[in-house]
Design a binder for these strands. Structure first.
Lengths: 107, 107
DNA sequence: GTCTATATGTAGACTCTCTATGTATTGAGG
DNA sequence: CCTCAATACATAGAGAGTCTACATATAGAC
């Protein structure tokens, strides 16, 4: 999965993956890999800054915790983030429809 | 349609739109708008440099022409570009599958 | 004569993602 | 004990593509 291909869709992915339950950065990376069947292997240098950005935007709420002697920052989806996620899902649909209609080889 | 959302998919769009018949930049912009039902309105500052880039890459072959007193640079899909387009289409499928599986609200 | 549509192009800003690097703890294997 | 892999977070700097804004020019309509 190319770098630029993913661009602009990272927010939706991150918000979506913490929808059910709060997760910390490392777990988010694993969740993305698993859910995508291995297609998405996002480096830490992408995820951690992105999580901070989404926290600053008010879509995620981060909290420090300790598990097994290791410090973790766990991110929870806020109400505002839930609304943003809905918007991202809707935008994703429009996006795939638009690109798909151009890419369709039968026209 | 957000700027970053489109990123990395412009090549596929441009190659796809000149697949059937060669087109010049301005016509390509119109074709993208029409085919996408108005969703894609790509500015000239994006398209013209991108066409040059694809020409440098060998995917498009550009040629100057004059129509109605106006100069046009018409781009034709090369064999190499045709192959690239096939790759882009395949990548698009994988991409939508991967993102879709993460975004799916039912999991 | 002015305005719109047609047609191409560049400069510079913007911002996200990546690579590379750094730190630190835990637990397994030898 | 020591080393290595896995876990966990983070930043600096590079890179690249898309955008805004601007510049130029012709044709045709009004």
């Amino acid at each position: 999965m190319n770098a630029d291909t993913l661009r602009g869709h990272m927010d939706a992915l991150l918000l979506s993956v913490v929808e059910r339950e709060p997760l910390h950065g490392y777990a988010i990376i694993e969740a993305l890999r698993e859910r995508s069947g291995g297609a998405l292997d996002v480096p830490t240098g992408t995820v951690y800054p992105a999580l901070r950005r989404l926290e600053r935007a008010g879509y995620l709420a981060g909290e420090w915790a300790v598990a097994g002697g290791r410090k973790r920052r766990t991110y929870r989806l806020t109400d505002s983030g839930r609304a943003a996620l809905a918007g991202e899902r809707s935008a994703w649909k429009s996006f795939t429809t638009a690109i798909g209609s151009v890419l369709d080889p039968s026209r």
